[in-house]
Design a protein around this nucleic acid. Structure first.
Lengths: 147, 147
DNA sequence: TTTTAATGATACCTTATTTGTATCATTTTG
DNA sequence: CAAAATGATACAAATAAGGTATCATTAAAA
């Protein structure tokens, strides 16, 4: 049971970013996130560094350092995270390769897959970290679970 | 660049089934397919056996044996092949696991992902081997490429 | 009836990807 | 200068994908 579209590091990134979004402009260290979210520390460190390089996070070195969002949570989308950790989203490189498929440009399956792919991307593009953390936030409040 | 939704064996299966669909009720051996489609023989054998077990193919042992479709090509869908080789289609097991997500039932992301997942499945369910082989067939004919 | 050409079952292997660990260098604050 | 953070990077383990090999079984044909 494989062929996942979303991998673990993307998952962890979403959780970390949601936590940061809830905590406003506060500088958050990896240590803090590890304690809150129970993500393996060295793995999360790599993830945060990747997000920093990608321009999604701003890092602060030294004592009291950590990370802040360098992009508003409303403008961080699932697609950004997926492409950061998994490269460009592709359902399949090209299901009909040479031999059978004499024309890559006109392949019926390729056309259908491409259409589906575009739709999926557009949907993932509409899911922001802000919307996720907000909505979960509401739910938690409603249930009286302390953040 | 990973996180593919469609893997190689699914791809090979599509190609093999399309070839068989074009060739009507004829019994086709793995050898024949290998020569036509240039798929690694032992790998294709495993694939055909899996399709047989799944009930999509009928096998004939012994000399002159091989496989026929045991389901009309119009009723073999991409979803069937994906689930045969990759298990149930899942975008992500559950992106918000415990800790952050106190309520699996009400998770905003899970809801969005689930909706998208359902859409994808419905689309893949609408793509049949028949439609693929037909359309490619037309294209090939139009371009004067001999089958 | 023996040979031949096919599939059935299954164990194994190789490579790529995912997931995670460890370490040392660098920076910043106190 | 020490402590606490990140930067960079190399390494390692687990899992999945892709592929190979072999022996048993079956059925047609010589």
């Amino acid at each position: 049971m494989k062929g996942k579209l979303i991998t673990r590091n993307t998952d962890y990134a979403v959780r970390a970013l949601c936590f940061m979004a809830i905590n406003g402009k506060e500088i958050i260290s990896v240590d803090k996130l590890v304690k809150e979210l129970k993500i393996p520390r060295p793995f999360l460190r790599k993830i945060m560094q990747a997000l920093n390089k990608k321009g999604i996070l701003q890092s602060y070195k030294g004592q009291g350092g950590g990370f802040t969002l360098s992009v508003p949570a409303e403008k961080i989308f699932l697609t950004d995270l997926i492409t950061t950790f998994q490269g460009p989203l592709k359902l399949n490189e090209c299901i009909f390769k040479k031999n059978i498929c004499h024309n890559v440009n006109n392949c019926s399956l390729k056309n259908k897959i491409d259409t589906l792919e575009k739709y999926i991307i557009s949907q993932l593009k509409s899911i922001s970290v802000a919307s996720l953390s907000e909505e979960n936030n509401k739910i938690l409040k409603k249930e009286g679970i302390p953040l």
